[in-house]
């Protein structure tokens, strides 16, 4: 391996690592706030990327139907509840948020040919289609059993994951796709060529992480989420709704997931099931941080990206084996570090 290849692999590893780091942060966030191990995170990556692909190809993305279906379902459930409690204004609000907004979005998509729009608007549309699925899924799959054990929530996560993966296959088919690159710029750094897209991924990830930091440190909702993560009961007593905290954390996770997918889709071919492996690599990072520490999780995720990149050079067939086997020494190390008795 010469310097040039090493740099190239390093660049690759850092690019992927930055994405894994974003996902790892979202996973830690969701787990801290809701105790849900968010396996379906990867599906948001795939949905984000493939929705943008559909929009650019001038097709109606399947995620629109999912959005309409889930929205209607929630409107029916919560609307009926509001009617029974004679909260008509609330009922109206629910219907407008969960039904009218998605319908307006659908109308826009039918009216305007998305393929001709400039890229930022396409990205915006894709996010508007995919991100609301996060809180909707929280409302339908997790919120009714929010007090269940971590184990039950994990099994639900896996169930949501396989459901979404099946739906992804139905919507987007088995073929992989790429989106158009955001920029064709490239820089040369010594002998190596820096791809503009790779730089964009890393820079955007760093910006997003900084935005998250700002959100948690400076905004009231960010503080509410942190409070819920620290002590659920205490936060509830202070008037922070557990449901709101859950939906908010799922919105953040879905945004991060979908945006990550959009970021990497010009450089990686995305299939309906690619998200799962990408999400799991974020997980390995998150586990390095013990599902608790944000900086360690991010560092761990970048390590996973680099390990993957360099192992694909030496033993490309075994790169997944190497990355996922890494979890065993990591768990061993964590196991030796902890010495607390687990209790409810």
């Amino acid at each position: 391996m010469d310097m040039q290849i090493a740099l190239l692999l390093g660049q690759d590893g850092l690019t992927n690592g930055a994405i894994y780091a974003l996902l790892a942060l979202a996973l830690v966030l969701v787990f801290a706030v809701t105790r849900v191990i968010f396996i379906p995170q990867g599906e948001f990556v795939a949905f984000g990327a493939l929705t943008l692909v559909s929009l650019q190809a001038g097709k109606l993305p399947g995620t629109l139907w999912l959005l309409l279906a889930l929205g209607t379902l929630i409107a029916l459930i919560d609307g009926a509840l509001a009617l029974r409690n004679r909260q008509f204004r609330r009922g109206l609000w629910i219907v407008s948020v969960y039904c009218v907004l998605p319908l307006l979005l659908a109308g826009t998509l039918f009216a305007i040919p998305a393929a001709t729009l400039p890229l930022p608007l396409q990205v915006g549309l894709a996010l508007m289609l995919v991100v609301p699925l996060g809180p909707m899924i929280y409302r339908l799959a997790y919120q009714p059993i929010a007090e269940a054990s971590v184990l039950v929530l994990l099994i639900v996560s896996v169930a949501v994951h396989v459901t979404l993966m099946g739906i992804g296959l139905l919507f987007f088919g088995a073929e992989g796709s790429r989106t158009l690159p955001f920029s064709d710029v490239s820089f040369s750094l010594g002998d190596a060529l820096l791809q503009g897209q790779a730089v964009l991924v890393v820079v955007t990830s760093v910006l997003l992480i900084m935005a998250l930091y700002f959100f948690f440190e400076r905004t009231i909702y960010g503080k509410a989420l942190r409070a819920t993560a620290m002590n659920r009961t205490g936060a509830r007593l202070m008037g922070i709704s557990g449901t709101l905290a859950g939906m908010l954390s799922f919105t953040l996770a879905a945004t991060i997931g979908a945006f990550s997918g959009i970021l990497i889709s010009p450089i990686t071919t995305i299939y309906y099931d690619s998200g799962f492996l990408i999400g799991l690599k974020g997980f390995v990072g998150a586990i390095i941080g013990g599902l608790a520490s944000y900086p360690v999780a991010a560092a761990g995720a970048i390590l996973v990206g680099l390990l993957e990149s360099y192992s694909s050079f030496w033993a490309s067939a075994f790169k997944e084996v190497i990355v996922f086997t890494l979890i065993i020494p990591v768990l061993l190390w964590r196991s030796l570090k902890t010495h607390h008795v687990e209790e409810e």
């Binding site: 191990i37 971590v150 990355v323 996922f324 979890i327 768990l331």
Partner: peptide, 15 residues
């Protein structure tokens, strides 16, 4: 904690 075993088995299953 209890959820590390299932996560470990997911990784082991894939690998």
């Amino acid at each position: 904690s209890g959820h590390f075993l299932p996560l470990g088995t997911i990784a082991w299953g894939i690998s």
